[in-house]
Write a protein that binds this DNA or RNA. Structure first.
Lengths: 128, 128
DNA sequence: TTTGACTTTTACGTCAAGGTCAATATTATT
DNA sequence: AATAATATTGACCTTGACGTAAAAGTCAAA
């Protein structure tokens, strides 16, 4: 048990390049262990990578992702910092709500496009 | 009636730079009229810009946005093209569904962070 | 033992999406 | 007439997020 993942194992699972994972390490997002020079990824690293990629899909920058990871690693203890964090959380929430709205509207439009396609195909099909 | 918008008017409304709007014109996304060299934006241009920015927020590239605009400007008439378009639509739909899921999960996490903040603040507050 | 699959570091390259700066109109106001 | 505000084109610059290529090491299988 307590298995290690190799770097290519993870690149295959997540559809990213080794460059990307090494880049994330350089950027301080992940800290895989080493045996010699070779990176050994634990299950925890793997989960972290999943979350990084989720952040990426949402459109977060590396800096933003790092910030989020940081908060989870050591949450602020002082009340001023806590209030600051809550403000940042509120901003992110608004941003994400906007994005969700954008996505839903766009999904609606995709439905319209698809329907238009089907209608047009039916017209053509009839005349053929 | 039938008002024109100046470029800065629109940059202020949408919070983008003039460079951005000129860039979008260079990229063939918009085609404002001209009086001499000066750009004159119609209501239709304004709406188009709104949609471009929505695409941008979602994370679409300029090329993708251009493609979408193109489909609206002249939808394909031939059945092969229609089927191709429907396939592309389906791909986009999956992509957006994934993104929406990512966003919802992240919003959940933001809730957790906020709650943790409140709890911690309460603890501190009690001790003060 | 050599082939193949993997790994490493270093370092320069690339591409999208604008930023920035210069030089130059045009227009309105004071 | 001078100033300020706004507009233009053109050109180079920047930043983020990797891509890519070189040179070299490790390890298992054939």
């Amino acid at each position: 048990m307590n298995k290690y993942y190799s770097i290519t194992e993870l690149t295959r699972e997540f559809g990213v390049s080794t460059r990307t994972l090494r880049f994330y390490e350089d950027e301080g997002l992940i800290h895989p262990e080493r045996r010699g020079r070779t990176r050994l990824f634990r299950a925890a690293d793997r989960r972290l990578i999943q979350e990084i990629l989720r952040g990426r899909r949402i459109g977060f920058t590396i800096a933003e992702i790092r910030e989020i990871i940081q908060v989870y690693k050591d949450p602020p203890g002082e009340s001023g910092q806590l209030r600051l964090l809550m403000k940042r959380v509120e901003e992110k929430r608004e941003e994400l709500n906007q994005k969700r709205k954008d996505i839903e509207e766009t999904l609606e439009e995709l439905n319209n496009v698809e329907e238009a396609c089907l209608t047009r195909l039916a017209e053509i099909g009839v005349g053929t």
